[in-house]
Design a protein around this nucleic acid. Structure first.
Lengths: 119, 119
DNA sequence: TCACTATATGAACATATAGTCAGATAGTTT
DNA sequence: AAACTATCTGACTATATGTTCATATAGTGA
């Protein structure tokens, strides 16, 4: 029923004010989105799922995914950047593993949601 | 040190075999990725964060986000498709709210991960 | 019916992203 | 040192995605 700075029509001023005061800052949403973006790819999810059971080296992961080692390496870089996986070196071989159980928690909840949504 | 169907070199056959037997099927990874993809956008996260506190109509959300109502509507469509939000109609106004607490659980874990990663 | 409001939708554009290919690194073995 | 292995990186391409604009739909009130 009125205009705001942004030019949008607002019906419920209080609701908008509440949303604004409870809101995180922009950067936090960007970081959150970045985090979910990392989880939002089938190849990366398959890697993470496999690493929940045991550490694996790059070429084994590539064999498992049936994609090139280069592609795996690119994905592992993203996963490392998001601190979801880390590695240890043994000679020329790099073994990757999960950093913590956040990945498992996230996938469990997401799987539950998907399951319940299909009813 | 042998070749697989896919032509990749495998070092640890057992690890690859284990990963394969524990793996979900392709479709499940696609669905999971789709779910995280929905969470992987700052605008949608801001909408979801706001709706954790109260239901809101489209034009209020637009005012809050400072983007067009059309853009909000497109995003709400995706969120509806993922069964993360639902709406109720009151005259011409549609009030949106969260379907369940999965969103809150996911964002809490992701925020924790981000926080812990910065140490 | 017509005008008005709130929301939805389709097309278009700009940006982001996953994979491929070629070439670079780093550790190993001789 | 040179040859070899495992992995990484940069450039490129095809596809996906978020927003805007214009238009369509659905409900309300005269």
């Amino acid at each position: 029923m009125n205009d705001d700075k942004c030019g949008c029509r607002i019906i419920h001023f209080q609701a908008v004010a509440d949303a604004r005061s409870a809101s995180l800052n922009r950067t936090d949403y960007e970081r959150l989105a970045q985090m979910f973006k990392i989880m939002a790819d089938p190849s990366r999810l398959r890697i993470l799922w496999a690493l929940e059971r045991q550490e694996m080296c790059v070429c084994d992961i590539a064999a498992f995914l049936e994609i090139s080692e280069s592609a795996v390496s690119h994905q592992l870089r993203l996963l490392r950047g998001a601190r979801l996986v880390k590695n240890r070196r043994e000679g020329t071989v790099l073994y990757y593993r999960l950093v913590d159980d956040h990945v498992k928690m996230l996938t469990d909840i997401a799987l539950n949601h998907i399951k319940e949504s299909n009813d």
